[in-house]
Design a protein around this nucleic acid. Structure first.
Lengths: 194, 194
DNA sequence: GAATTTACATACATCGATGTATGTATGTGG
DNA sequence: CCACATACATACATCGATGTATGTAAATTC
């Protein structure tokens, strides 16, 4: 076994702990994501956690930050030219991104004000993930904004369903088709190129 | 102070514990709803909890059952004659009924299979609260079913927003107005009396 | 009104999660 | 190659949550 450099070991351990944290949040929720469980799954002891992060709260904050980065990266560079695009892009974030982690973080922050202060900045950024900044050209008027908000809440409803059932919902495509239909109607009426 | 009968004492204590449990679930979430916190808030000792319920899991199940009953009662006898009605009724359940309790229960059951088995029957009933049985005359065809599902998911999205922010969302009426508009269009096209 | 049951409170043991200190092997700079 | 720093593992103390046993005052039965 070739001698591994310090940065390699550090990076591997930190990544293992972060991935373990995210997996536990997704599979077993916030309460079950304890330092013991995280370290066991990552194959290290709690000493490593303390050494690299100082404690579980800091690791949680880091992990959420990393996860936010992944979600953000998955839609970076994607062009949002129409409402139809918005539906598909927002849904892709929910569908592919272990979005239950985000919901767990939202609820945990709401339930514990102290924790909310700690992970608040990260949590807030999640809120902006599901849609574009409202000042972009995609929502120029009240009508567009209304449609955007509705699409957003509907997709969050589907996300909640996935989080609470542990899998796809069965009627997701039915709902998404209706959203796409609403979006297409809006796009064509505003002369937006599809 | 007049001598109180046994059934009076029992009923008062049980009600206090159940209300305390629901309040804690709503305000501080599932993880913070511990037997110590519940009893302290109810003004009794853990002995009383054990005596009346046997343990915290049973109390949680009971409390959820009571809460379900309250939500159900709030819409009992309400006529669901149109899609427009559905929007308002479903929203009234979310808005008035400490719906965060339901979301917490859903997530807790999903996160802990053992717990899911314990409170599963109660949790499942919640799922049927937000809308009518899909076999009623309100959703006679695929089109109506699609609209119903979309309305349902959108309102659940708003419910999630309320649960994670601790208060109204600011754009709730905008979204609800759009849902009502969709519902009215549907009602008029199917010749349904508004 | 005495016996018995009910409705709790009190006390103790246990167990899991976290904080913290210290030991130790491994890489790193001089 | 030696002094040092880094990256962990191990061990112990603490603390909160729960299980459980027992004590006791109140109500009910007879």
């Amino acid at each position: 076994m070739a001698p591994r450099t310090q940065v390699e070991r550090t990076e591997a351990t930190r990544a293992a702990l972060i991935e373990s944290t995210l997996a536990l949040l997704d599979e077993r929720g916030w309460a079950a994501t304890t330092s013991v469980a995280v370290c066991e799954r990552a194959g290290v002891t709690r000493g490593a956690l303390v050494h690299h992060f100082g404690g579980l709260p800091a690791l949680l904050a880091e992990a959420l930050d990393v996860h936010y980065g992944e979600l953000q990266a998955s839609i970076d560079g994607v062009e949002l030219a129409s409402m139809s695009d918005l539906v598909d892009v927002a849904w892709s974030v929910v569908e592919r991104g272990r979005f239950k982690i985000v919901i767990e973080a939202w609820l945990a922050a709401a339930n514990d004000p102290e924790l909310g202060a700690a992970i608040g900045p990260v949590v807030e950024r999640f809120a902006k993930l599901v849609g574009p900044d409202e000042r972009t050209s995609l929502v120029p008027d009240a009508e567009a904004r209304s449609l955007y908000l509705t699409v957003r809440e509907t997709i969050l409803g589907l996300a909640l369903g996935r989080a609470t059932t542990g899998g796809p919902l069965g009627h997701e495509e039915i709902v998404l088709d209706r959203l796409r239909d609403l979006a297409r109607t809006h796009d064509s009426q505003t002369g937006d190129p599809s």
